[in-house]
Design a protein around this nucleic acid. Structure first.
Lengths: 357, 357
DNA sequence: TTGTAAGCGTTATCAC
DNA sequence: GTGATAACGCTTACAA
């Protein structure tokens, strides 16, 4: 087994100094044609590659991005990672992944683990527990140490940093408008608890669309699911809750759900109750994942463009990392009120499938 | 903005030497009670945390694991990552993710990028293109440099390393046996091209089960899908292919598919053709993902236990990393024929749902 | 009890 | 044209 070769070893073998080797390999013309040739040939033969860690230490930058997300077994988040990895790689960065598992503590531990030199900046989406606690000190602490953060999807005003969000509000408006245009009179909303910002925004969009169309919102037609407890049989519970909801509100002829799971479950329940889709009930979900494409009937959804969000977030972060940092630092130092942070809004798009007319 | 504080700065502030600070912080009793107190208090105040990169360079280990997978937007792979991250984190490791995107070249580039000091070892699953080319030199080169690899799911005999696989063969046997017990007479197989090892093994399991039950395999009942080209409308193509297959083989009363997408699509086609499930056709898939749980009817599957695979793989790798390496190195040096590499086989399990009787 | 120095692998500056 | 040296941040013999 030949351990990776270092400059030192090459120097020793070729009886030159380490700095000569370093220069020769970087093609410096300080070094004679001859020596350069010899050294490069030798290095190639032994497949020399500079040690990343040493470079990181020297340059005080690791060329790696830390991703911190609540959950990886989730289509949306994996598409975001794919987007991040895509541009990160293209721009010479690696990607290190931490999972908060929706836990406040794990989020903090993970951040601290990565913030100690392992990465140059974060791309993250806030855990539910953190949103619930509304404790964002760890984000601000990280930023104050000079490590930039880009937040996506689950973001929060209390932290000043670049953000990439999908236009949840307008996405919801579009979806509900579509249902209204399709002649739905009693449109139900299936949403999450309000502390999840995206759920709240989509709920607001729903209300806005109704109002714009002079429809009075009926609170009975709004079902808020509490998914904070991750119990074993949450699928059953969900189904039961939705079924009860349908039975209490027989007049429902349209459903807007803030994620595809709720939407698909609603379709299932509706079918079970003898309703046909889209004839009796039309359904639109949010997030264009696997379920939407393969449900029967296939589900009309508001697409979130996860991969695009990831790409934009990565570009934002790398731009910041590679721009002259003085400006940024200055901002942090002065706590300058006029923020130059960017908030990118990714437009949503309705993907029409079979669950709407 | 206060940049992260270093030992040097603490030393300067407190007017002691760097090594004194280092020792005091690690609780060495070489240092007097007094100084230790003072230094620890100061460090705490300034939230000192040792720089990971410096530690990595010094210790020649990074405490991070490199994961290299073909695709992240894939339920199975994300469960594996979750498993890896879980134990890695518990054992003090970070996880860095590279995606080959099923490409041979990207696999190599990614490996080289990570093998230059960024990580201590790899956990990976081979890309389709690599399997097709049967060129595994990059894996062996990495191993020869003293960097351990654990392969999972898509593994290959040509590379000597620890492996974690699911018992594809027996999983398939179990599935087909179940169909036979459920009185299916004409069981179709929907599989991938043979170069994907898991597809091949599952196909063999199918054949074995038939033979064990004295059923003569009918090659017309085997559909091999070529998914090597990742085209835009592959879903449609898939559906058409399967539909043609069903139309040509009206007698099919059972389907075993090597992944859940094929299974779900088969169900869809069957329903379209007026067949009811499970009355007319029973279907079993492989891989227990989102689709299986939410299809209508819900799909009976052979569960792959991705998270468990990830956990085992991580434990295997970390054990190897933390064991005294002399043995391992010795093995590599001598090219010792009696391999002490471990091949863990994860048992599959049939999860019964509505698509079978 | 504290400090000095070497070393992990690089690169950059400066001297010869 | 080549080499010595310092520095990145840390740990650890060894010296004082």
């Amino acid at each position: 087994m030949k351990r990776k070769i270092t400059l030192k070893q090459i120097a020793r073998e070729l009886d030159v100094s380490i700095s000569t080797v370093s220069k020769a390999l970087s093609g410096s013309k300080e070094i004679s044609e001859d020596t350069t040739q010899k050294i490069q040939a030798f290095a190639k033969l032994y497949n020399y590659k500079p040690n990343n860690i040493a470079l990181s230490l020297k340059n005080r930058k690791t060329k790696t991005i830390g991703i911190l997300i609540p959950e990886i077994v989730h289509h949306f988040f994996s598409t975001v990672i794919r987007g991040i990895e895509l541009v990160a790689n293209k721009r010479g960065y690696n990607v290190i992944v931490g999972l908060s598992n929706e836990s406040f503590t794990k989020e903090i531990i993970n951040m601290e683990m990565l913030a100690n030199g392992s990465i140059d900046g974060f791309i993250l989406s806030i855990s539910k527990e953190t949103l619930l606690k509304q404790d964002y000190h760890h984000f601000n602490a990280t930023i104050n140490q000079g490590m930039p953060i880009v937040m996506f999807d689950r973001v929060v005003n209390e932290v000043e940093c670049d953000k990439v969000i999908v236009d949840d509000f307008n996405g919801a408006v579009k979806a509900v408008n579509k249902l209204i245009q399709n002649a739905c009179k009693n449109i139900a909303l299936i949403t999450t608890m309000d502390y999840v910002s995206v759920g709240r925004l989509r709920t607001q969009g729903y209300l806005e669309a109704l109002e714009n169309n002079k429809i009075v919102a009926d609170s009975n037609l709004i079902l808020k699911i509490d998914d904070s407890l991750d119990v074993e049989n949450h699928l059953e519970i969900l189904e039961n809750e939705i079924q009860k909801f349908f039975e209490l509100n027989k007049k429902i002829d349209g459903v807007f759900a803030v994620n595809e799971l709720y939407a698909v479950t609603a379709m299932k329940v509706a079918k079970k109750l003898g309703l046909s889709i889209p004839e009796d009930v039309q359904v639109i979900g949010f997030t264009d994942g696997v379920l939407s494409k393969h449900a029967t009937p296939t589900l009309t959804t508001v697409s979130q463009h996860g991969q695009k969000m990831g790409e934009q977030a990565a570009n934002l972060l790398i731009d910041r990392l590679e721009s002259d940092n003085t400006e940024y630092d200055q901002y942090i130092v002065n706590n300058n009120p006029k923020s130059d942070f960017i908030k990118l809004v990714i437009e949503t798009e309705i993907i029409e499938r079979e669950s709407t007319k």
